[in-house]
Computed example of a mutant assay.
Amino acid sequence: MLDANRSGTATAAPRAAATELAVLAAVPVPPLPRAGLAARCTRAVLSPYARLSLLLALLAGAAACVLMFEPQRLLTHGWPPQLGGAAAAVVFAVAYGLCTVAFVPRPLLNLAAGALFGSQLGLGTALAGTVLGAGVAFGLGRLLGQDALRPLLRGRWLKAADGQLSRHGFRSMLVARLFPGVPFWAANYCAAVSRMGWLPFLLATALGSIPNTAAYAVAGARASAPTSPAFLIAMATIAVPALAGTVVAWRKRHHLRGR
C-alpha cells in the first residue's frame, strides 16, 4: 500500500511540472524593446566622425564668408563711420576673433588694428581678439574634433608634437606664439586635439602674442611714416623673431625625427 502511494506521487510530480511548462509556453512573451529611431539618430549625430564633419563644414563656411566679405578691405576703406570709441574697439575685437577662426592671417588684422585705433588701443583690441579667436578655435576643436582625430596620431612627428603639447602645454604654446612660423589656426587646433588644459593654452596665447602683436600694431599706426624710428623698430621686431623661429625649427628637425 505504501509503495502504491509512493508510485502515485512520483508519477504526479512530472505531470504537474509538464502542466506548468505548457501553461508558461502558452503565455506570450513580450519582445524586447528596440532602440528607437530618435536614439539611433542621436548616437549617429553625436559620434566622433559626425562631429568632425560638422567642424569641417563650419570652417569651410567661415572661410567662404571671409572670401565673400573680404575683411582686408578695412585697411583701405577704414572703419564704418557710425562706430567709434569703445564700441568700435569691442566690435573689432569680436570680428578679429571670428576672422582668425576663419583662417584670416593675424598680421593683416594686427595692421588694421593699429591703423584704425592707434598703437595702444590697437594693441589691446588685437590681443583681446587674439585670445577670443584662440579660445573659440580651441573649444571647437576640443568638442568636435578631438575624439575623432586622436586615434589618428600614429606618425612619429604627430606623436612627438602631441606629447610635447600634452606634457608641456604652457611652455610649448608660449614658444609657438613668440616665434612666428606655426600658423595661428594650426597651433589652436593642434592644442585642441592634445590634452592641453584651457588655462595654460589661453595664458600662453595672451602672453606670447604680445611682442608680435605690438610690433604689427605699431607698424600699422605708423604706416604713413615708413621712415620713422617707431616703424623701423616695429619691422625689426617682426623680422628678428621670424628669423629666430626659422633657425630653431631647422635645428629641432633632427630631434623630432629621432623620436
Rank of each mutant, 00 (worst) to 15 (best):
F231M: 04
L21D: 10
G258W: 13
L55P: 01
M235A: 11
F117V: 03
V29Y: 08
A230P: 00
V131M: 08
L55G: 06
V101Y: 02
F201G: 04
L116V: 08
P151W: 02
L132M: 12
L199A: 11
T100N: 06
P30A: 10
R34T: 09
G8Q: 15
L2Q: 12
R167M: 08
G155L: 03
H255C: 15
G85Y: 03
V90H: 11
L109S: 02
K252P: 14
R171W: 13
I233F: 10
W79Q: 05
T42C: 02
W79C: 09
M68E: 15
A236M: 03
L143Y: 11
T42L: 04
R34A: 13
S119Q: 09
A26M: 07
R106Y: 14
R171F: 12
G84S: 13
G85V: 00
G85I: 01
L132P: 01
T130S: 12
A244F: 09
H77I: 12
C99N: 07
A219D: 04
T130I: 10
R51K: 12
L54E: 06
A204Y: 07
L24M: 10
S166I: 01
G141M: 03
A88V: 00
R167W: 02
P48E: 10
K159A: 15
E70F: 01
R167A: 13
A148N: 08
A89S: 11
F138R: 00
R142E: 04
A176V: 09
A60F: 09
T246N: 13
L58R: 02
R251C: 10
